[in-house]
């Protein structure tokens, strides 16, 4: 099965971090990504730019409305994602629990809706 790991965290905390700490954090993500790649479970994934860069589109009366900012204002924001292939939920949990994101936020596991 495929699962999406969605990393939710307070993006302002990262922005306020001292440079050395931020670099260490990114290195941890790098190692994690490599580990998943080496294990052959990684199907894709990326880090997302902060919500200040977000644009949201809805439609009102058939007309697209474009607004600045995220769909929902929350304390934690979606900061990145991984798409992985796992044999079952336990394997997905085991990968998610190694994600550095669990220590500074939460990792949500969403099964992909396979046809």
């Amino acid at each position: 099965m495929q699962y999406m790991l969605l990393i939710h965290a307070d993006e302002t905390a990262f922005a306020a971090m001292p440079k050395a700490q931020a670099e260490a954090g990114l290195a941890a993500y790098g190692a994690y990504t490599k580990a998943m790649n080496d294990a052959g479970v990684l199907k894709g994934g990326d880090r997302l730019r902060p919500t200040a860069m977000t644009t949201t589109v809805t439609a009102k009366g058939g007309k697209a409305v474009v607004v600045d900012g995220p769909f929902a204002e929350t304390k934690e924001q979606l900061g990145g994602y991984y798409l992985i292939e796992a044999k079952d939920l336990d394997e997905a949990i085991s990968w998610a629990s190694r994600c550095p994101g669990v220590h500074h936020g939460a990792v949500e596991i969403r099964p992909i809706w396979a046809a």
Partner: peptide
């Protein structure tokens, strides 16, 4: 079923 909860002794 949809989340892939395993039928397995952990």
């Amino acid at each position: 079923r949809d989340a892939g909860v395993p039928f397995r002794v952990p």
